[in-house]
Write a protein that binds this DNA or RNA. Structure first.
Lengths: 211, 211
DNA sequence: AAGGGGAACGGACTACAGTCCGCTTAGATG
DNA sequence: CATCTAAGCGGACTGTAGTCCGTTCCCCTT
């Protein structure tokens, strides 16, 4: 694994897994309250129609606390999706093929995109909120997806610029674009999946001729 | 023209197609002042560091006037780029190949992307401002690009879902993504152009090569 | 149990996009 | 030139994300 690290853009500050961060009791309580309130409000009224002030008030904490915990609106949305996202990443790493390891890279890529599209279908609004203001590129979940796609592309076609193509492919799975195509343009989920397949199929169909 | 009118059942108050907008003198003057101020401020300090209040003050007009004219921050950025964009569209429609008509669709697509990347290199910050808040999808310039790419794709590969693939390809030319790749990740412009060529090449490899 | 240090709290504050509405005035009409 | 009216004006106002900083109180130490 180590030798792959040059592919990473830089993943600093991965949340420490072990015990470096003992959380104070009141902090933990408040975090839970906030997540709970956010989940409820987002579900009730849609993520786009809930302000941070409302979340703070509903949770019964101050605004400062809310932002100290989560840093930004986008980060809060991500935190609400966290459980979901963890499960998805688990699938990618240890799940059954074709999503998990065992299938050819090309099949895994297709499965990945289809799963992403299913997630988008289920949580479009929240995901739009989660990728606001360019945080899309920095955020933890995005980094994992990026790495996953990069590795699969490199595996399927060692000659290609996997890092760059991964970004291009992921851009086509962005939440804002999805919302636009799905709801403003009325494209069906099946059509979007077909499009993804076409895109991946094309990208992986043999190395481009050397210039 | 006039002699047709007896045939018409009476079309009162159809929105005038031509000469719709006789602009009042003060309005024209203010629009010019605003564009001038915006151009200057954006150039001096970067589009990201200029607030609408500042533009209004520098232009010597009220905030209401500014928003009445341009509607939003993104629209103002687009207006500042307008001249540039007109010239570019002219190239697409009537310019020399490979950007203009005359070259095979595939070459034109590649040239289109490279030209877009050059534009991004020159005006990244302004273009980021211009595509804020999903206005990317609605705005005039975006619509022309979309149509152009869709037509070329359809021409090069009639079997494909040109509308959808056009969106995917255009997403990879988004200003935010460009800024991230170019400046945060430090990829060279040449590399981005190569990536675009790879992407287009792959997408169009499905169909039999045009003879 | 008491005390001290520092993390956590909360809400007032800032900055900014975008809206509203009463006042002004360009320019058309007679 | 006088009058009229609707387009245009401007700045106060709203709603929201995110910051600051004086205060509180958790938890470790003794």
């Amino acid at each position: 694994m180590e030798e792959l690290s040059p592919l990473l853009p830089a993943l600093p500050a991965l949340p420490q897994i072990d015990a470096v961060a003992p959380e104070r009791a009141d902090a933990a309580r408040n975090r839970e309250r906030i997540l709970c309130a956010a989940r409820r409000l987002f579900a009730e009224r849609g993520a786009g129609c809930v302000s941070m002030d409302e979340v703070a008030e509903t949770a019964g904490v101050g605004k400062g606390t809310l932002f100290r915990r989560f840093g930004s609106r986008a980060a809060l949305a991500r935190a609400v999706l966290d459980e979901q996202e963890r499960a998805f990443q688990e699938q990618l790493i240890r799940g059954e093929p074709p999503l998990g390891p065992g299938a050819p890279a090309r099949e895994r890529l297709i499965a990945f995109g289809e799963a992403m599209l299913d997630t988008l279908e289920a949580h479009a609004e929240l995901l739009v909120a989660a990728e606001a203001r360019g945080e899309r590129f920095v955020a933890g979940a995005g980094a994992v997806h990026r790495l996953h796609v990069t590795l699969l592309l490199g595996e399927a076609e060692p000659e290609c610029d996997a890092q760059l193509l991964a970004e291009a492919l992921l851009a086509s799975l962005g939440a804002e674009l999805f919302s636009y195509l799905r709801y403003d343009r009325g494209m069906s989920l099946a059509r979007l999946k077909d499009g993804w397949r076409e895109l991946v199929g094309g990208t992986l169909r043999g190395a481009p001729e050397p210039v």
